[in-house]
């Protein structure tokens, strides 16, 4: 199979260190992976090419990089499937982390975030006489998240980290969930209150935009974003609802439960809090522009037809609604 690997090269030792693209036309076996191709280039064409790799079997997590603009493992990506109609595959280092040389990035940011969520069990309940016993069922759903191989693909493509390095990011938040959802962590009931409080702060679970980049990038099916959504549910249930993120979720759900449709006028007001005058005044310029352009949502919010059917479903399925 003939193809061209277009590799983003970077040499910090160069006279003027600047990233540049270089094309490598190669002839390789049809079943070769992108990693096989990179190794072939390094060993036969250009010994100066730097990349990290080890297991070649999607277990070690060393070879995460961007292939055609999206993060993934080079060893898990078939070259035949990655090449475009011109036979070109674009390969560049993982995003959101600085390149050390060529395809190797500095993973300090990744590890700092993981450390920040204290990735170890912190039981606070009474210490059992023998070992901690947990049921099979309570651990089964964690098998997905413990499959993380720390490759950094999710961090590479996170759209929030791209604009704000303070964000904990998908890998660390998924790791945090691995502990908040472990019945051995936290109080006697397995509620990790301290963690959930901290994770509800700025830079934590509510800063995720739900863009699905991490779900798409993860080579192991960890689905970090789904874990972040589960963290939000845990935090609301544990009583950490006094923030814009939690209020937004509650107000949204409540609005649809009432009228079947989203009330877009009420939502931002309830999100920042009806008594939060400075934040409400902050909406004024945008609200004024919308008003003058005839763009304001209807002042009288209408119900969908047969809304009672939706309300019945809420009564049955939304516990917090029926408790009110």
């Amino acid at each position: 199979m003939e193809l061209t690997l277009r590799i983003k090269r970077f040499n910090p030792g160069a006279e003027r260190p600047q990233a540049y693209w270089k094309d490598y036309p190669v002839s390789i076996e049809d079943n070769a992976t992108v990693l096989d191709t990179l190794i072939y280039i390094r060993e036969s064409l250009d010994g100066s090419l730097t990349l990290r790799c080890s297991c070649r079997s999607a277990i070690c997590g060393s070879c995460a990089m961007r292939i055609n603009g999206h993060a993934g493992l080079a060893c898990k990506t078939k070259a035949s499937e990655a090449k475009d109609k011109d036979g070109v595959i674009r390969v560049e280092p993982a995003g959101n982390m600085p390149a050390v040389k060529d395809l190797a990035v500095n993973l300090d940011l990744f590890w700092r975030k993981i450390e920040q969520v204290e990735p170890y069990l912190k039981p606070q309940g009474p210490v059992p006489e023998a070992e901690y016993v947990v049921s099979n069922e309570s651990m089964l759903h964690l098998s997905g998240v413990t499959a993380c191989i720390m490759c950094g693909a999710c961090v590479s493509d996170c759209t929030v980290l791209e604009v704000d390095p303070n964000f904990l990011g998908p890998a660390a938040l998924a790791k945090a969930y691995r502990f908040t959802a472990d019945p051995r962590d936290g109080d006697a009931k397995g509620v990790s209150r301290d963690r959930l409080r901290t994770l509800s702060e700025y830079g934590g679970m509510w800063d995720c935009t739900r863009c699905y980049e991490c779900v798409q990038a993860c080579p192991k099916g960890v689905a970090p974003m789904d874990r972040i959504m589960a963290l939000r549910d845990q935090a609301i249930k544990a009583g950490f609802g006094n923030n814009n993120g939690a209020r937004h979720t509650e107000a949204f759900t409540e609005s649809v439960g009432h009228s079947g449709m989203l009330d877009e006028l009420q939502l931002p007001i309830k999100t920042v809090g009806v008594t939060n005058l400075p934040a409400l005044l902050g909406f004024a310029p945008v609200g004024f522009r919308a008003l003058t352009h005839g763009k304001l949502p209807p002042l009288v919010h209408k119900n969908i037809e047969n809304v009672e059917n939706v309300r019945k479903l809420y009564q049955k399925l939304d516990a917090s609604e029926s408790e009110k």
């Binding site: 929030v160 704000d164 995720c208 939502l267």
Partner: peptide, 9 residues
């Protein structure tokens, strides 16, 4: 999605 949560971002 984060407009009212982290407007700066």
């Amino acid at each position: 999605p984060i407009l009212t949560i982290n407007e700066k971002n």
